[in-house]
């Protein structure tokens, strides 16, 4: 029952049940552990990945449904941490424990694709990922900075 997934531009042949959540295929079958498990019910956002450019919660999506779609994980955002969101995150020293930040960054990337100059209201509406360390203050600043970096 092997199936193929396109992740970060690489075709992976995966031998797992198709109902397995995409999160576990990414982490345990393919070995991309930057995507994190937080709740398993699509609530916290730690497992966020991009699917055809949209932020989706991979813990709540069967891997079979991702076949034929273009998946981007945090590892695929840039080869060297140079994506504008990553640069901005570093500039504002955003992460504390860091566990939710892959999901935060990918959600922000999806937001910036749709709204290159997001307002605070846009950020409030789109950034629905939980951070228990409470890094929201810096995430907001970093998103504005990333928007500016993209525009340069």
């Amino acid at each position: 029952m092997a199936f193929t997934l396109l992740v970060n531009g690489v075709q992976y042949s995966v031998d797992a049940e198709q109902e397995t959540p995409l999160l576990w295929v990414l982490r345990d079958s393919i070995g991309l552990t930057g995507t994190k498990y937080g709740c398993g019910i699509g609530q916290c956002g730690a497992c966020t990945v991009l699917m055809d450019g949209n932020a989706v919660r991979s813990c709540f999506m069967q891997a079979g449904r991702a076949v034929g779609r273009k998946i981007t994980t945090i590892e695929g955002l840039s080869p060297d941490g140079s994506h504008p969101a990553q640069l901005a995150w570093k500039e504002f020293d955003v992460p504390q424990c860091g566990y939710c930040q892959s999901g935060q960054i990918l959600t922000a990337v999806a937001l910036l694709e749709k709204k290159p100059k997001p307002t605070d209201a846009d950020i409030d509406a789109q950034m629905t990922n939980a951070c228990r360390c409470g890094t929201y203050h810096r995430i907001r600043q970093a998103i504005h900075r990333a928007a500016a970096l993209r525009g340069q």
Partner: peptide, 21 residues
């Protein structure tokens, strides 16, 4: 001073317990 571990935490490279293989 900026955190030494932050660059790893924006690329998915930081290894947490859950990431051990």
């Amino acid at each position: 001073q900026k955190s030494l571990d932050v660059p790893l935490k924006v690329t998915g490279e930081a290894i947490y317990g859950i990431d051990i293989r």
